[in-house]
């Protein structure tokens, strides 16, 4: 068994799993589990642990937009340089360089459509290398990070069966 891979799989399913329960499921000792996870973290494989939140079920206003960015590079400016500047904004929750019609796909989060629009027009669009932005507001989230947001399946099995 690739111990780190197995631990990664388990943490991807439930990042709150206790060391003891990770140990029980892998037959590693608790100390070994701690060591492997320390290595995963210090090697930068595991970058963090977060909750998967369904904002529609909170009383907080939350708006998310997927924004397409086109940029123009020059001798001095590379994708990494532009990405470095954009990712500094706390409003940007994800930033990816992608293939296809545009260059960057970014996710912007805010409390209202107005706030998100203002952010894109005032902070992102004016960046000299940015030639075009297209903002898509998210209307509903059905699945996020492998978790379906629609109600869970009820267990309709008989409680005891042979």
């Amino acid at each position: 068994m690739d111990e780190k891979r197995e631990l990664l799989d388990l943490l991807l399913e439930n990042a709150r799993e206790s060391t003891a329960d990770l140990a029980r499921q892998t037959e590693l000792s608790e100390a070994a589990v701690e060591d492997r996870i320390d290595e995963l973290e210090s090697d930068g494989v595991v970058r963090g642990y977060q909750a998967v939140v369904d904002w529609d079920r909170t009383d907080r206003d939350h708006v998310e937009a997927e924004v397409e960015l086109n940029v123009e590079l020059d001798r001095e400016t590379k994708y990494d340089d532009i990405a470095g500047r954009i990712s500094k904004f706390s409003e940007v929750s994800s930033l990816k360089l992608i293939s296809g019609d545009y260059d960057f796909a970014i996710t912007v989060e805010g409390a209202s459509m107005h706030e998100v629009s203002m952010f894109v027009s005032e902070q992102i669009a004016p960046i000299p290398e940015v030639t075009q932005t297209v903002t898509h507001f998210v209307m509903d989230t059905y699945k996020h990070r492998g978790i379906e947001f629609a109600g869970g399946d009820d267990d309709d099995r008989l409680s005891i069966s042979p």
Partner: peptide
């Protein structure tokens, strides 16, 4: 509030 470990079939679909 019974948790059943008495089921002889998968819990997956």
């Amino acid at each position: 509030d019974v948790i059943s470990l008495g089921v002889g079939e998968p819990d997956f679909s």
